[in-house]
């Protein structure tokens, strides 16, 4: 598939259609707009709500290992299943889910290329409002694999462009501080701008006109040649709350095969609120 380093983590909509209802294949939809799943989803898919099910409801954090085990158990998923994630907005939160699945050691998780919009616009693909009947499982997770995640203390020790590549994947207006967050967002920061030394490469540069990922050659040209991401260094991606950066994290780690890529999920809502932290506009 388009010469990706790890083609096994991506499936096409046609593949999903052919594997609907097959044993060992589980579909999960994760959207920004939580109305979308109820309005219609791929037959057999369960829906995860990123706000209430993928975030710890008390402190600001990803869900704990126990909560992850409960979530997957209730969704009828076992550690040996092939899990296909898809969602709206070009798989933003599906990619975030993918990152979370990897943190807790799920072996075979994949993204559906093009997300729910590609499926929606293909005439041979069905949607349903029917919620699947689930037989719960006892899911056992491993990890957490913290090599996939950057926390603030570690970030503050980095010297971008020397010790690491730092990739800001937000829109140009957020990068330059013209806006603190896209309009209407409740999670914001105290200040606008970006982390000094970060390269502004909007997440959307990784997808083509139909919403699917660009080829490995195109991606290499964008990230490595044009923007000088050094593949020999650690790479950290961030955005506003860690969902768009999961998308770029996926591209860099799995499609381009860079070997040390992390998601800084605290992202701008954390960094842009730190007293005394340096900011560039």
């Amino acid at each position: 598939m388009a010469n990706y380093a790890h083609p096994e983590v991506l499936v096409e909509t046609d593949w999903v259609k052919q594997h609907l209802g097959k044993p060992g294949i589980k579909l999960v939809e994760i959207d920004v707009d939580s109305k979308a799943y109820a309005a219609g989803h791929i037959p057999g898919a369960v829906g995860f709500n990123w706000q209430t099910q993928l975030q710890d409801q008390l402190r600001r954090d990803i869900i704990s290992k126990t909560a992850f085990e409960q979530l997957l158990g209730a969704a009828g998923i076992t550690p040996d299943d092939t899990v296909i994630l898809y969602g709206d907005n070009n798989n933003w939160f599906a990619a975030y889910g993918f990152w979370l699945f990897k943190i807790y050691g799920h072996k075979d998780v994949r993204l559906m290329n093009g997300g729910r919009i590609k499926w929606l616009n293909e005439t041979d693909k069905e949607l349903t409002t029917e919620v699947p009947q689930i037989t719960p499982t006892q899911y056992r997770a491993s990890g957490p694999d913290l090599s996939l995640r950057t926390l603030l203390p570690e970030l503050l020790k980095q010297q971008p462009n020397q010790t690491c590549n730092l990739v800001d994947v937000r829109s140009p207006d957020e990068f330059t501080g013209k806006v603190i967050a896209p309009p209407g967002m409740t999670e914001t920061a105290q200040r606008g701008g970006h982390i000094p030394g970060a390269k502004g490469i909007p997440w959307s540069t990784a997808v083509g006109a139909n919403g699917t990922f660009k080829s490995a050659d195109e991606l290499r040209a964008i990230y490595l040649d044009k923007n000088a991401v050094d593949p020999n260094k650690e790479t950290i991606a961030y955005c506003r709350i860690g969902e768009r950066s999961s998308h770029t994290w996926f591209v860099l780690k799995y499609l381009l095969g860079l070997n040390n890529v992390k998601n800084y999920d605290g992202s701008w809502t954390e960094y842009g609120s730190i007293v005394g932290a340096p900011i560039e506009k």
Binding site: V32, D33, K35, A36, A39, G40, H41, D88, N89, N90, G114, I117, K118, L120, N121, E126, L127, T128, T129, R170, S171, P182, P183, G184, M185, P202, W203, S204, V207, G208, A209, N210, G211, T212, R244
Partner: peptide, 26 residues
Amino acid sequence: ISDELCPAPGLGDGSINLAKTHAKAS
């Protein structure tokens, strides 16, 4: 529905997509 968050290729318009979803699923 929420307004577009961060413009991107291939997304189309949120209200059009949700309406299409209803028509296709129901």
